[in-house]
Design a protein around this nucleic acid. Structure first.
Lengths: 339, 339
DNA sequence: GCCACGTCCTGTATCGTCACCACCCCGGCA
DNA sequence: TGCCGGGGTGGTGACGATACAGGACGTGGC
């Protein structure tokens, strides 16, 4: 294995000069630099990242903990995060938490082992009760929802407002009995609870009554459960002419379930989702959705994290207190809520 | 920062003993072990992964280079790989190559920097001409297609056989004019070329003529391009009653494009894809596809890589020569090829 | 009584890099 | 002439862990 020493010897300089060249430090004569670069090339020298990491205390890698990358939403999120991180010279390692509290804690632990410079955590399992666990001395950014008064930076979706807009859109399009397919509401700050709130607000604003029979809770936010929920709704005898689905992934399942039940979208029932995953535009009927501007959210999350990582370098200032960014959204009306 | 030395001092043992405890080495008295564990706990000691990596020459992380994780297929592949790697105690960092040759080379370079113990490369841009570039001294497994006589392990899809089966299925269901939507065929070993071969074989076997007007090449294997291709086909005046799509992602677009053109699936046109992505089962109509057993392929790829990594540890034997595993497949018939 | 062996533990020497600081040299300026 | 400053370069010493070799001690066989 060829080390920096070997290169130094070959180029007739000290290892430090080689290091300066590698790291683009100034104060190296052009001629020297070129001699070093030539030696590097000839010997086929490659920096040993592990040694550098040890010396600098940085790994150049951040962790991204998501429930499962194979759900469309998280895959697209991961892609955005990776792209944004690349802009900061950071690599991204993905942890799958399986949407469980344990998985999320395990990801936190890895970060604590200095395997990652920082962690972007897309929480599902952690709740306000766990804020203490987040009081760690390494950079963490929570992405996707809000942990009330958490001690770390948050990049949150416009959950309530988006859900309200989605529901209002259904109502505008003529729906009077809007169903809701959402996940288990465990507290005040999980996606399902927040979007439920938005749904309720929109009903209230329109003066429509809330009918608990139109709420179909599902255990996991998957296509499978979405489809089952739609069939359950259709089979329950409760009348409904619109469905707000807590995520697009669920909505894809719901569209399927409605078809299974012989209901036509948008004629019999209008459907809207949340997340605006790429697939939505290509479904038949195409899926209306709330678009939370993933790129901006991903960019902001990575930006927050990068700042925290940078400020750990300097000893002084701990930087600003926990920040919160709530993304904006736009409504994308497509065929599933069409006339 | 608390180091192994601090723990050793607190527990009244040598750093090595602490190391042994951490790494579950035998030959440590129970009482000693517990004393050490208590010290670790009290001091809040965490191993410094960077230092361990430097000393052992391993990082415990493998790279997974895919074109883009936000395409359903690669997202699902990534999920399987991450799960399989976890079984070997390996983390996975994802590189997005953007389906370009440069991106794939960049991923190789990172691996060469010992940032990763090994690399799983889902090639799209590299061709047989690049086999030399793969002659590297660190573990690499090519996943997804075959680079002819490459010097590294391969885990390939049953591309030709699968495509033949898909096309034959359309023919069995009564199609006589089967169109093909595939990517650019650049050589002999890219996905598009191999699946094209399978398509041709099935036509020949059924005694159906090949009509070049029924081949719609697209630049990138995306939903967008798939939809455009379908509209092009429908508008071209060429008659067709079946479409084999080179991937499911493309097929999702094709279904959309056919709907835009007023064609009904499966009544007017039957459609089949390749990959069996999860979404396929929930589309309306649900998508018939070739299921290549992702879990097995992912498991095999990770297994190959893990073996190579292990054998690098011992100095002797370079292990077996380049291996090749071609996965099996099954045909999943759904509504899109229904009566 | 002696040796061989297994268990349990330790001292020391790196792994390859970069931070820190010292240093040299030379031109410019008082 | 002497001093200063800064561009360019190098020496030293960790970073925190583990590999390796080996030592102390106890046990058991002959």
């Amino acid at each position: 294995m060829v080390t920096i020493q070997d290169v130094a010897k070959a180029a007739g300089v000290s290892p430090m000069t080689v290091s300066h060249v590698i790291n683009h430090h100034p104060h190296v004569k052009n001629e020297t630099r070129e001699r070093v670069l030539r030696a590097i090339d000839e010997l086929g020298y490659r920096v040993n990242v592990a040694a550098r990491n040890l010396r600098t205390g940085r790994t150049g890698t951040i962790g991204l903990a998501v429930p499962e990358v194979d759900r469309p939403y998280y895959g697209q999120l991961a892609a955005e995060i990776i792209a944004a991180a690349a802009g900061h010279g950071l690599k991204v390692a993905i942890e799958q938490t399986g949407a469980s509290r344990e998985g999320e804690l395990a990801a936190l632990a890895l970060s604590r082992n200095r395997l990652y410079d920082g962690l972007i955590l897309s929480t599902v399992g952690l709740g306000p009760a766990d804020t203490d666990l987040l009081k760690v001395d390494h950079p963490v950014v929570i992405l996707g929802e809000r942990i009330f008064d958490g001690p770390v930076d948050h990049v949150a979706m416009p959950n309530v407002a988006g859900a309200r807009a989605a529901t209002a859109h259904l109502i505008e399009r003529g729906c009077r009995r809007v169903a809701l397919v959402d996940g288990l509401r465990r507290g005040e700050v999980d996606v399902s609870s927040l979007r439920y709130d938005g749904y309720r607000e929109a009903l209230d604003a329109a003066g429509l009554p809330f009918d608990p029979r139109l709420v179909a809770p599902i255990e996991r936010l998957t296509m499978e459960h979405g489809a089952a929920a739609a069939r359950r709704l259709a089979g329950s005898g409760a009348e409904f002419d619109g469905v707000f689905c807590v995520t697009d992934t669920v909505a894809i399942g719901v569209l399927r379930g409605l078809a299974d039940s012989g209901l036509s979208v948008p004629r019999d029932v209008k459907v809207i989702g949340f997340d605006n995953v790429a697939e939505g535009a290509y479904l038949v009927p195409s899926l209306s959705s709330i678009d939370p501007d993933h790129a901006l959210m991903a960019g902001t999350a990575v930006g927050f994290l990068a700042e925290r990582i940078a400020e750990k370098g300097k000893k002084g200032a701990r930087g600003p207190a926990a920040r919160e960014f709530i993304g904006d959204f736009s409504l994308v009306a497509r065929e599933s809520t069409g006339a």
